[in-house]
Design a binder for these strands. Structure first.
Lengths: 169, 169
DNA sequence: CAATGATTTCAACAAAGATTGAAACAAAAG
DNA sequence: CTTTTGTTTCAATCTTTGTTGAAATCATTG
């Protein structure tokens, strides 16, 4: 397989994949492009390469920076801003896990905590009971997963998963 | 907090959440409704409760069944189909993990395997090198996560996470 | 501080995704 | 076989999300 093909396919695949994760296709493509680029890139280079609008590039880059997986870098004597992706895929995965935990898991925990202690108005005991069982279970699962992610994040991805696999096989 | 409120909030929250996960809001709501319902429900009851169209309910239920977290059940002497959710949240989480692995992780592994062994056409050594480093890393991470999920799935969620937390703290 | 170059914002537009509802289909009952 | 009841399909429509491009903002330079 030729370099240019392979590179394009990676960008396409990553863009495709990203849509399954609440991230726009363009963001995914930009991220892939930065991952495989040996040097930081300017927005103009990205526009050129992916044929997308300046506005879109600007917004996507900002969002990638907010996710913490792309960094602005300044090159001495250069006026333009340069962007580079995190190159360590484990670090990247952890950073994504950390953000998703914050954006998705933490709110669930909050929400389920509010739903504890129900006052059975017109409902039957069975109904109240079932609802309680569910919220309690969901809270339990969410809190344990949360704890697990904390540990994983603290100990660094590779170490964590390696240990884990060796311990639990 | 009153029962009816709490129930509605759970349904709203779950529907909201589901959109972050490539699942439509309606599907999430139906799932929440089935989770807290002590008895299996017919599509008519779901339509009534959530005020959504028959077609939507039919398609969403099918999809939930494909995900393996909702089951059709037949009640003797009844002509209608009844649907019930998996009630064990750990089982549910595992089933979702299993499906997501199949739908999202496995394709990445496949794709990265295709991208190994690049023929440097017009590209510089640095560029080829960077691309190779990336695809190799991604493949590595994906395969380890895959292995981890396999172990987790085999040993059952609760056991898995409990062990893991206790071992790695 | 005016001019130039770079970046961001945002209203208008486009694309993708979700939902509806009515027609087609399937299964059981009379 | 016909009717009744229940389920699925799918084109049309609505909703949500993503994208563009030009104007506004910001920053640097002479």
């Amino acid at each position: 397989m030729k370099y240019t093909e392979a590179r394009q396919q990676l960008i396409r695949t990553w863009g495709q994949l990203s849509t399954h994760w609440g991230i726009s296709r363009t963001m995914g493509q930009i991220h892939a492009l930065l991952m495989v680029s040996p040097d930081p890139m300017t927005s103009d280079q990205i526009i050129e390469e992916l044929k997308i609008s300046r506005g879109n590039v600007s917004m996507s880059l900002r969002s990638l920076v907010e996710w913490g997986i792309v960094h602005k870098t300044f090159i001495p004597g250069e006026r333009k801003e340069y962007f580079a992706s995190e190159k360590d895929v484990w670090k990247m995965a952890l950073q994504i896990a950390r953000e998703r935990k914050r954006r998705e898991l933490d709110p669930v925990i909050q929400s389920m905590q509010h739903l504890q202690a129900i006052n059975p108005d017109s409902a039957s005991a069975r109904e109240v009971d079932e609802l309680n069982k569910m919220t309690t279970q969901i809270l339990d699962v969410a809190m344990q997963v949360d704890k697990m992610l904390d540990i994983g994040i603290r100990s660094g991805g590779q170490t964590f998963v390696r240990k884990l696999i060796s311990v639990l096989r």
